[in-house]
Design a protein around this nucleic acid. Structure first.
Lengths: 254, 254
DNA sequence: ACGATCGTTGCGCATAGCGCAATAACCGAG
DNA sequence: CTCGGTTATTGCGCTATGCGCAACGATCGT
């Protein structure tokens, strides 16, 4: 809505790809160099970008500090983390915690697999919303109209042959997930990777987060992974309990 | 330099303190609500802020994703991390890695102590520049005029009786540090906490980062901590070697 | 030492962003 | 269920603000 701010913020993802000099930034923004300079200067004053010795700009450290604070404000993450670690110790696989934000599902925590083969994912990154087990849980809990609207709006990329193909199929899957109280992704995103996921609920019973265990076929079969379901559910319930108890809705005043 | 962007960016640290509603944001910015609304909307579109169910705004997940990417772009951090972990395994204390950015020294990596007593610090947060051992190393390597100018500009808060009291004392300390090639902070920031630090150098010999080991008096005395100096220096040198070898100055093209 | 490239500055014009005030959604209390 | 109070949202007219331009200056490579 605000042109200037819009442009300034567009610089950040651009710099996330790697350092860039003034000319490059101006060109990719489609503005004059003097304009880009002013925007970069303002970003610089706020520590959002940093100018390295060769004059090129990179993302600044204040950004990292802010993100760190943002994460510390996410109580679910703080509460959940030790549980994720324990679960990882018990099963050895990659463990994720995800939340819904606007129309995206994002990982907010991750404990890496103890097996040498890792999977690619990044904290803060949106997940494949139409196939990920955690996404199904979070969306399944949405009120009917929103769920429908969202399902309509989404794209359904066929990552693999088992990806959710379209809106109706997705809504059916969500109904199933809501009913059974857990979800899976069996090769719907990466051919050889399976996940089992369980919901974390707040005091009011609404799903506030979802956690999953993921492992590639080469380590355990889908059947073996499903064996872990009770453990995953128990862990998720433990987080739910702690979360509902400790943090109803309120927030500490500054 | 750009008013609108300036205001928009000022919202972020404000929200880092905790969620806030439109009125609060407008008031703290000193602008009309409609103005704050427009700014927040723009930030929202870029995923920098998120609007939770009670209509209040919090920091968004895109911020976290960007910060994550920013960290992955910091090659020193990537290269250094395994070394920090190994050092921590060997000595058990808290290990930090820091760089200089503009006029601030910031932690970019941290491995927590294995002892129950932890120290407070946060990745991305500026360190106490006049007393921290890592800061001394980074500033000591600055060209004479910049060093002098910076020393002049700084404040010299007396965190403890042993804090660096003023500019001249600081410059003397920096000279000493530069000559000996390592630095300490013996209770200059927190009465009971000591640090030893060593520099990481690039191919051209310039100091690009500094690492430190910190421990409270109650765990080891300052003398015992100094015993670790050779180990710290060896680790820092190992990082220097790898960094100079792998990443001269260049950068991968997108 | 010279030319090309890239960053920086000052300026006048037009637009983009501002505050205002009216409207609309929301919430709690009676 | 209705009624105040509170908070978010919209449209609008004014002017400050951010824009592109073009001239200048720094920097680098050869």
């Amino acid at each position: 809505m605000s042109q200037t701010v819009d442009r300034a913020l567009s610089i950040l993802p651009l710099l996330a790809e790697g350092p860039a000099d003034l000319g490059q930034v101006a060109e990719r923004l489609g503005v004059h160099k003097s304009t880009a300079l002013r925007l970069l200067r303002t970003l610089h004053e706020h520590g959002m970008v940093y100018r390295q010795s060769d004059q090129r700009y990179r993302l600044g450290a204040r950004l990292i500090a802010l993100a760190q604070e943002a994460m510390e404000n996410l109580d679910i993450r703080e509460i959940g983390h030790p549980h994720l670690v324990r679960l990882n110790e018990q099963c050895g696989h990659t463990v994720h915690l995800a939340v819904l934000e606007d129309d995206e599902v994002l990982y907010i925590d991750k404990v890496e697999s103890r097996y040498p083969v890792r999977m690619y994912s990044r904290i803060g990154k949106p997940v494949a919303i139409t196939v990920a087990a955690v996404a199904k849980l979070l969306l399944a809990d949405l009120p009917e109209p929103e769920r429908r609207a969202l399902a309509d709006k989404l794209d359904y990329p066929m990552y693999t042959a088992r990806s959710t193909p379209n809106g109706p199929a997705f809504l059916r899957e969500l109904d199933k997930v809501r009913e059974q109280g857990w979800a899976t992704d069996l090769g719907g995103h990466e051919e050889s990777i399976n996940c089992v996921a369980a919901p974390v609920r707040g005091a009011d019973g609404r799903v506030v987060a979802a956690m999953s265990v993921s492992a590639p076929n080469v380590v355990v079969t889908a059947e073996e992974l499903l064996t872990l379901l009770p453990l995953v559910r128990r862990t998720a319930d433990a987080i739910s309990g702690e979360y509902s108890g400790k943090t109803p809705v309120k927030e500490a005043t500054s």
